[in-house]
Design a protein around this nucleic acid. Sequence first.
DNA 1: CGGATTTTTGATCCAAGTCAATACTAGTGG
DNA 2: CCACTAGTATTGACTTGGATCAAAAATCCG
Lengths: 235, 235
Amino acid sequence: MITRLFLQTHPTPLLSDNEREALEAAACGTAEYGTKRIIVREQAPLTHCTLLVSGFVERYKDTPEGRRQILAIHVPGDFVDLHSYPLKRLEHSVAALTPVTVATFSHEAIRTLTERSATLTELLWRSTLIDAAINREWIVSVGSRGAAVRLAHLFCEMFVRLQRSGMTHGQNYDFPVTQIDLADACGLTAVHANRMLRQLRERGLVEFRQGLVRILNWDKLQKFAEFDPAYLFLD
Amino acid sequence: MITRLFLQTHPTPLLSDNEREALEAAACGTAEYGTKRIIVREQAPLTHCTLLVSGFVERYKDTPEGRRQILAIHVPGDFVDLHSYPLKRLEHSVAALTPVTVATFSHEAIRTLTERSATLTELLWRSTLIDAAINREWIVSVGSRGAAVRLAHLFCEMFVRLQRSGMTHGQNYDFPVTQIDLADACGLTAVHANRMLRQLRERGLVEFRQGLVRILNWDKLQKFAEFDPAYLFLD
DNA sequence: CGGATTTTTGATCCAAGTCAATACTAGTGG
DNA sequence: CCACTAGTATTGACTTGGATCAAAAATCCG
């Protein structure tokens, strides 16, 4: 069941068994990528969408001055580029943060799904829009939160998203990225990200070490981060 | 023709005359709002989508500390909250930056459209995803561009978007927002935005005065702003 | 084991924020 | 039509959060 996690994490609108089977049947193969491998290259014409089955993926843009801005981080069960179906190409790149397994869906197969079920269409459309809502929350983060708060907010977001997929262990979760990645996601330098991580640890909020996040005090962390999960549309 | 500008600015995928008429027929009324009036309130349950017919609109979030982050600015021909169709509520608010006229479309009417035409669905879906691509470009702006560059980039974006709607006059266009709005969109303080505007003027790139943008040197401005319109999916 | 990333810490610098005061502008009502 | 007001815009002086530069320590990995 390639689509199990996706369906589990996207319960709205409710699909019929037929619709769930049609989605599963639309998958047309799987692929593997090693760490840092590019999965989708900016501006390349696309004919398939990619569902992340295992591992972590980033969407990013490199600026002329050599800075990298991470735009989104994906966890298993996320479509990483479903937006390529209506857009036909992407304005950013997609790369593996860890070794990953993905499943692919051809645009034609998705087109067929949209012709057959308005409900399934709504679900797929909705999932791309939840992505966009996360993009907007990141605008708020980089635009109007301090460095430590940004990092804390990201740890909260990943905790909730991974929890939904059953990928947390109590107050801990694996988040196999480097401090450089965290910095690139939050619009910081790696040096400053490192200092802010120490601060979060010393304040007893979160600890990040070797790809493992340990939440020390969820309530305090959530408050400190101004984190309100409404933008994740979890219902 | 309420949908004329929308169709004109969203040529892909190509619709049949039937589909164009069906979209036009789905409109269920118009409304007016004065400057600063809230059009859609964060978290309110929604049953209609809003197409901007005239005037300018902002989407924004207010943070606990009283900062406002503008997430998007809309121009005539844009659906300002088509994403409310799959999402049913929004995680941000929508307000009028100027006096505006909008047309509304009920979610049921949109549902009917999606049942009848996969092509029309793809067009509507696509328009929400272009919005999301703009959101992501704003992440890059606030996350990794300097203050003057951010402002310059915004002026470039608005120029291209307004040009597409025939709302520019040569190298000038009306952009009836305050410096406070510009600052809130770019994640800056109004004081610093003011200084950066002076710098852009003195460098001979753009001039912003009383809601009018005057592009002094498009080539230099575009280069300075690192502006590449690919993310607007103009084709 | 050995080279390459990554993490950590220190010292210094600068872009942008803050605080404050003045000028300008557009509405509003008498 | 002008005076009053509230919201903008502008400029100056000062502070600060985060960047930059540099070097050492830790970790990863083939």
